[in-house]
């Protein structure tokens, strides 16, 4: 099929769609509009989720709430429905290191917003990886709790949380039931936190938020907590954390993931929201993670 035939078919398809469009509704009298977030999932739901993956909790002490990660972005493609689609999206345009082909540097920029993110809180950034970066660990020695039966290089190195030295990376493999599995890890010199599991389509589709937490109660993070979000809903442009003590943090996710450093030894109680590029709330959840 040549270009002209392709254009003709596309034009026909678009025309067919346009001709099915219904009549517009009469414009109702304008009334004040407020964004209504989706129903907030209460603590009980969060802890029920923890209970369901109690096996993982056992090997990840002090983890408040866990979910396998994934990714999202400025949805330039359809939401992936398989691990293969997801991985292709994640590593598309990535840079494979010449001296270490087991590492691919993810090159996806954060999604843009049509509003000023600083209106929502103090920005934190995941800096892009450069060709001089290497993961703090490699495939052979990666010790993922809940590690799949088989891990498949390359490691997708996504970025470093500014000012913390914490890296975010992902790896895929096959679990013990031969199903595709995805592992994510955020790691610093001493602190390592990770999780593996199937690609969670309901998270990618915006039905909920997945949160992985590392709190000061862990010896390796005495002065701060870390909150990791993923898989974020596919069109997430900004993650907003509102703690009940008044602190607010925001981040534009990189490759559909967000990692926050929350100073202090206090418990983390608050609300996390994923916003789209127009500041519309995609999903919002409460969290309560003890020190």
């Amino acid at each position: 099929m040549n270009d002209q035939q392709l254009d003709e078919q596309i034009t026909r398809a678009v025309r067919a769609l346009a001709e099915t469009s219904p009549e517009p509704l009469p414009l109702a009298a304008a009334t004040p509009q407020h964004r209504s977030p989706r129903p907030i999932l209460v603590f009980a739901g969060a802890f029920a989720a923890v209970a369901l993956i109690a096996g993982l909790v056992a090997v990840l002490p002090r983890i408040g709430r866990i979910a396998p990660f994934g990714s999202t972005g400025p949805a330039d493609t359809a939401v992936p429905t398989t691990m293969e689609e997801y991985w292709t999206w994640l590593t598309d345009g990535g840079l494979v290191l010449e001296d270490n082909p087991d590492v691919v540097l993810v090159r996806r920029p954060p999604p843009g917003t049509r509003f000023d993110p600083r209106e929502y809180g103090e920005p934190q950034r995941i800096l892009p990886v450069s060709s001089g970066d290497n993961p703090l660990w490699d495939v052979a020695t990666a010790n993922f709790p809940g590690r799949p039966r088989q891990l498949t290089p390359p490691v997708a190195l996504i970025g470093t949380l500014e000012g913390s030295g914490m890296q975010v990376a992902a790896l895929r493999g096959v679990d013990f039931t031969e199903e595709p599995a995805l592992c994510v890890q955020f790691a610093g010199d001493e602190l390592v936190s990770s999780i593996c599991g199937p690609l969670e389509l309901d998270a990618l589709n915006g039905a909920r938020l997945s949160i992985l937490a590392q709190t000061p109660g862990d010896r390796s993070s005495p002065e701060a907590s870390f909150l990791f979000f993923g898989p974020l809903p596919w069109d997430t442009a900004l993650v907003v954390i509102r703690l009940d003590d008044g602190r607010r943090y925001v981040q534009q996710p990189r490759a559909g993931m967000a990692l926050f450093r929350i100073p202090g030894p206090t418990a983390l109680i608050g609300t996390a929201s994923a916003l789209d590029a127009d500041a519309g709330t995609i999903v919002e959840e409460r969290f309560n993670i003890g020190p």
């Binding site: 026909r12 398809a13 678009v14 769609l17 099915t20 949805a75 330039d76 493609t77 359809a78 939401v79």
Partner: peptide, 24 residues
């Protein structure tokens, strides 16, 4: 919807259009 409205649209095209992302 696309196929039934214009029988000259190839069904494969209709399906492929339906699977494009909203942005696309």
């Amino acid at each position: 919807t696309i196929v039934t409205h214009d029988p000259e649209v190839l069904p494969e095209v209709a399906i492929a259009v339906a699977k494009l992302s909203p942005q696309q």
